[in-house]
Design a protein around this nucleic acid. Structure first.
Lengths: 191, 191
DNA sequence: ATTTAGTAATTGAACGTTCATTCGGTTGCA
DNA sequence: TGCAACCGAATGAACGTTCAATTACTAAAT
């Protein structure tokens, strides 16, 4: 696949992302995506077999981009620092890529996600998080609770925070963020 | 509005809830809702002006029902007990009303929510939560952080937990739940 | 270097279906 | 008698997808 192709495919992705954010999955016709991406309607069907496949691929694309961004830390950092770092990187990425964030949220809570879930392939991001929490537990730094409990509180608080900020309920102030991740840390660390 | 009407309206609500969970907002035709609710298509338009209005009203209906359920505690309970109680009631309600949960999640992350958000009416649930956290801060039991920080961690963890369980990632075991709310409590309480 | 042929990418009008909404008529109740 | 509730076939617009035709690219042959 040459560069030109990559550009068209990405243009379609980006247009879909933007339009779905504004009008929802089904409020976004293929024709509109095509216009916005400066391609013909038929061209989309050269890259994707259907609208559903386009949306599924876009989801994977978004998830990959997010993961690439948050796991690029210095391995030498102390555990606590990495704990704060990863969380902050995630919040940062979502706040600077709100369309990605909302698309992922929309996708996860829609019936689309059922289609992905069935393929029980653990993917990069989950693996990384699992290893990170495992390290914390084994070294006695954080409490010995299940992976999914840790994920719930770690990721759940991050996404809730991003929602609050993008809804406009609270300002994007560092204070609230720092408080929040500190609360999480206090909660999961071994006393 | 008599009982019969209430029944039809509620039947429409419940059918919409169920079908939207299965097929999404736009994968659910009005005709299908009508069939499922045992009414004629036209009847829906007697109660709601449009599909959008139906979905908006359903959202309010779900939110009210949820709030009714979680704030019925004994005022005499100690603060910590109420802190655990409300959280558990919320998780309970969502786990036993998964369709309500997913509909609300879908709604919040869709463009529909923009329509509601603009009407800056604070509603019952938010008020109650605000007063509850305020009480905890004033009495020195929990840390003095912003309302939205507390909401992020308290509600965020609950919804994340429910997602994990309904996705089938972790079993509906009391252990994980107890760990989770305890982590939150450890995080927000004054040391 | 130029031609040629084959393949991949692209186009957008046309098709057939689906769906939200309407409306004229019917029922049931006060 | 009047009004609200209810019905469901009809309407017309919108949308996903197809497809026959056109263009752009690649590389082998001359």
């Amino acid at each position: 696949m040459n560069v030109q192709l990559l550009n068209k495919k990405e243009a379609i992705f980006e247009s879909t992302l933007k339009l779905i954010n504004e009008h929802g999955f089904h409020g976004t016709p293929m024709s509109q995506i095509a216009t916005h991406a400066n391609v013909a309607t038929g061209t989309i069907y050269h890259y994707f077999n259907s609208k559903d496949e386009l949306i599924l691929e876009l989801f994977k694309y978004c998830r990959e981009k997010t993961n690439e961004h948050i796991f690029n830390f210095d391995e030498d950092l102390a555990y606590k620092e990495r704990f704060f770092y990863i969380w902050n990187r995630l919040v940062d990425y979502y706040l600077t890529h709100k369309e990605t964030f909302w698309f992922i949220e929309q996708f996860y809570s829609s019936p689309y996600y059922e289609l992905i879930k069935q393929k029980k392939t653990t993917y990069y991001g989950v693996d990384k998080m699992y290893l990170f929490f495992e390290e914390g537990i084994k070294s006695g730094i954080i409490r010995n609770v299940s992976f999914y409990t840790l994920i719930s509180v770690y990721i759940g608080s991050a996404t809730s925070h991003v929602k609050m900020v993008t809804y406009g309920f609270c300002k994007m102030q560092t204070k609230g963020r720092e408080d929040l991740i500190e609360i999480i840390w206090n909660g999961v660390k071994n006393q």
